[in-house]
Simulated assay, not measured.
Amino acid sequence: MSAAKQIIVIGTGIVGASIASHLAKAGARVTVIADSEVGGVATPASFAWINATWGNPEPYFRLRTRAMAEWSRLANDVPTIPLSWCGGLCWDLSAAEMEAYATGHSAWGYGIERVDRATAARIEPNLTELPDLALHVAEEGVAEPVAATKALLADAERHGTRIISSTVTALVETDGKITGVDTSHGLITADEVVIAAGVGSPDIAATAGINLPIETPPGLIVHSRPYKKLLNGLVLAKRLHMRQTSEGRIIAGSDFGGADPGMDADVTARELFAAMKPMLRGADGLELDFHTVGYRPTPVDGFPIIGRAKGTDGVYIAVMHSGITLAPVVGLFAAQEILDGERDPLLAPYGLSRFAQ
């Protein structure tokens, strides 16, 4: 490992913050560059569910469960990260899908419990509508997204990272290698550049001829004013997904990725909030505070892009939906690969080169 290696990380979302923190603690000289508030576009609008849940093949499940373990380690290293293993109660699938999910993931070692209506009521006593059958995973959790990102960036700064507010206009190439970035404040050089800029990543990569096949679907989430405790954990119901934040806000979307904002996001938010209140006992005084519309950087096949761009030395890419779940393990594995040249086998399916085939 080269302790003096100079790395630029573009982006202050939770993925970029984790990479910067891991690199700095491993001895790299890190500069973080971003042209937005901490968290960027996607992180502040995230439901922030940490999980390895249904609908994914086993290799991706293994990456996500490793990420869940890394969240616990990271929270021990950075105690200011607001992390809660509050558990998730799910019944937004058909009976057949829930059975397939429970059977398959239990075989992989995921702690799924089938629960009846009475047990669900004990888990979440303030729900007005409960199913005959639900699935409960006690090991799922949340990390408050902006606060966690700030904690990681502060940890990176404690280990010598510089954070610069500027706009990256282009990657700089010298003799076939990326050697830095042009910014609105001038040229900054480095041994390697990490692109972790979420929805802004494709435009930055394109300045070096790198194509990132990414979609950016919007998702609307409503946020209540802080309120008394109504929910113990994550609730993935038929009509809405919701949870209560550490400051007491109930947040909800038509799924964890957020609702389609429609033609008028304000109207959609009010309708969504109006549908949520009757689902919660004791919510008469609950008031809508604001809504967010996040644009999720989602590779076209649904899986993350993590690794170096083949044919272009000096640039590392980390772009994905599920950034909240994956951030700790991506930070760890990216730092190992950038500094030591060791690529973890769990990342094997997620290189950019898969799109060229």
Rank of each mutant, 00 (worst) to 15 (best):
D313E: 13
Y295R: 07
V15C: 04
P213T: 11
G186W: 00
H321F: 08
I221G: 03
F303K: 12
V330K: 06
K238V: 15
E139Q: 12
W49E: 14
V172R: 12
K150D: 04
D260R: 08
P349Y: 02
L347E: 02
V319A: 08
G11S: 12
R73Q: 12
G55T: 15
D284C: 00
S166M: 03
A206P: 05
P226I: 04
D132W: 08
M1W: 13
V142C: 11
M1E: 03
P304D: 11
D255M: 02
G219H: 04
A156N: 01
G16P: 09
L130A: 10
A274G: 11
D313P: 05
R29Q: 12
I188P: 01
E97W: 04
M68G: 06
A3S: 12
A335P: 09
L234M: 12
D284Y: 07
V9D: 00
A327K: 07
P59T: 05
I195K: 10
H321W: 13
R281A: 15
D203E: 14
G111S: 10
W85G: 03
G160W: 03
E124F: 03
A102F: 06
A3E: 10
A156E: 02
A206M: 11
T189I: 06
I7M: 08
V172H: 09
N76H: 12
T183S: 11
T161V: 09
T174Q: 10
A170K: 05
K150N: 06
M320G: 03
I324E: 00
R62Q: 12
I112W: 09
Y101T: 15
G233C: 06
R343Q: 11
A4H: 08
L187M: 12
G257L: 14
A309Q: 00
A143E: 04
I305S: 01
I250V: 15
T119D: 10
G307T: 08
A190N: 01
A283R: 13
L280C: 10
D132I: 04
K310G: 15
T128V: 05
F61A: 08
F290K: 14
A75I: 06
P349Q: 00
M320K: 07
D132H: 13
I19W: 04
A334D: 01
I188L: 13
A28K: 06
F290Y: 15
F290V: 05
M279G: 02
P82I: 03
L236I: 14
D289H: 11
H185L: 13
L339I: 14
P217V: 07
G40K: 11
T207D: 05
F355V: 02
A206G: 09
D266C: 05
T245P: 08
T128A: 15
Y227W: 04
I306W: 07
